[in-house]
Design a protein around this nucleic acid. Structure first.
Lengths: 250, 250
DNA sequence: ATAAATCATGCAATATCGTGCAGAGTCAAG
DNA sequence: CTTGACTCTGCACGATATTGCATGATTTAT
């Protein structure tokens, strides 16, 4: 059996079963576990799956909806948010994407800072109630999974803005595949905002590293600042340090 | 079963049941309690859950702003909201104004009803996350006091809609001056929505009766339904019963 | 206060991992 | 045909991860 054939079978099986156990595959293909491990390692590098101890899982585990994400690693997100808030200068126009990590950025922003803040997330907008900042809400069809406006109306409204900083939210980052997310419309909106912004900054928790989602947003070299947890394993962050314009640890 | 898979299941179960009992999980996965305890310990360290004696609980999601609004909601508003929700039919396009009373209407709406809901309030939009309804968010400059979109962009977006019902929020109602509110831009938006809607309904708590705010929204005779507390004094409501198209007590 | 349940820790057995190395096969240039 | 570069594969070996058990401490319930 050809290697590429075998890897195609592994992909198919992963899609079917939702998991891969290295030992099982070795028996099934009558190969050493080493070979399977090498397959899994290479496929993980190519973003086809997520390597875990004992086997592999699909890259985009269907698990975390917004609610469970709200409960995740809030301490880490608070630190990222505080570090990101330090990048903001009075008088700027900043665009804040949706997501719980960006919500922590909002909480860390000084309430009395004179700013203009644009967002297409009603959740982010609701958090800005007590801030002095002028808030521009981008409307559109609300995409429920991540609770952001999408569609032509949102794109048109974004066309009116020239943000100084775009705080981008993404579900996955990969050394070669860059930043990506799960929804087509959402990705289109994020690309549009990034294209109009002077610089794009993104806050990333550790579990997003090495993952790939279906829809591309931007390459790592296009991002002016990656804010990552200081607690990350050096070998996890190493491949990104090569390409990133600037990495800020929080 | 892979370790990371098991932990994902624990997360999912926690989100679903709201709690984890270590012993139960051990039997369920056919593993020693030590392993489960180690999982819980590590996941707690990662901020995924809160460890307690005997098991684990979800990390309390701190959404102070929305929470404080929830605590403000009174029984009266809940009753008004439930009554208003009964007016909504599947398939309709309804427009929901901002305000805590309309928030109760949203909570009373069946989550599985097929609807299109438009709103210019990010707070209302955020509450619709779990509903099946299609949500259209109206963007614009956010008016902080009542947290609704205003301005030309909002007006333009509203021009695209033909709502079946507009659930209007107002700060004051008066027998001769009708419905009014405190902000000029806000009043203009409300008038625009009402003008395009087949009918306008408003939910009113007792303290708003007899008051007048600077900016006129609509006369009482223009409102298809006034939803008022059944507990109101008859002499307070009497002047309105003359002019109103329909009064619904809740 | 006492018993039962739950917990943290250390330890040992097993599983899995990464890496280096060597043999077998492939392919193209000489 | 031969040679050398290359890839794929299996094996060895030390490192790391996972798990169950034993032990003693701590917490909870009665």
């Amino acid at each position: 059996m050809l290697t590429s054939q075998r890897r195609a079978l592994i992909s198919a099986r992963l899609a079917n079963d939702g998991q891969i156990v290295a030992g099982e595959l070795a028996r099934e293909f009558d190969l050493s576990e080493d070979t399977i491990r090498r397959d899994l390692r290479d496929m993980a590098a190519a973003g086809l799956l997520k390597r875990v101890h004992g086997g592999a899982l699909p890259v985009t585990p269907p698990l975390p909806d917004l609610e469970s994400r709200q409960t995740m690693s809030t301490d880490v997100k608070k630190r990222l948010g505080r570090k990101a808030a330090e990048l903001v200068r009075a008088g700027q126009l900043i665009f804040i994407d949706g997501g719980t990590t960006n919500a922590e950025l909002v909480r860390a922003l000084p309430r009395d800072m004179a700013l203009t803040i644009a967002t297409h997330s009603p959740v982010i907008a609701a958090l800005l109630e007590k801030h002095r900042a002028e808030v521009i809400l981008i409307g559109g069809r609300l995409y429920k999974h991540s609770m952001v406006s999408t569609g032509a109306a949102a794109l048109a409204a974004i066309g009116m803005l020239r943000p100084d900083i775009f705080f981008l939210g993404a579900t996955a980052i990969h050394p070669t595949h860059g930043l990506s997310t799960g929804d087509y419309e959402e990705a289109a909106i994020k690309r549009a905002i990034a294209a109009r912004s002077a610089e794009t900054v993104t806050l990333l928790t550790e579990e997003k590293f090495g993952a790939v989602s279906p829809h591309h947003i931007a390459g790592i070299e296009e991002i002016a600042g990656l804010i990552i947890p200081a607690s990350m394993a050096p070998e996890t962050s190493a491949p990104y340090r090569q390409k990133a314009v600037r990495i800020i640890e929080a």
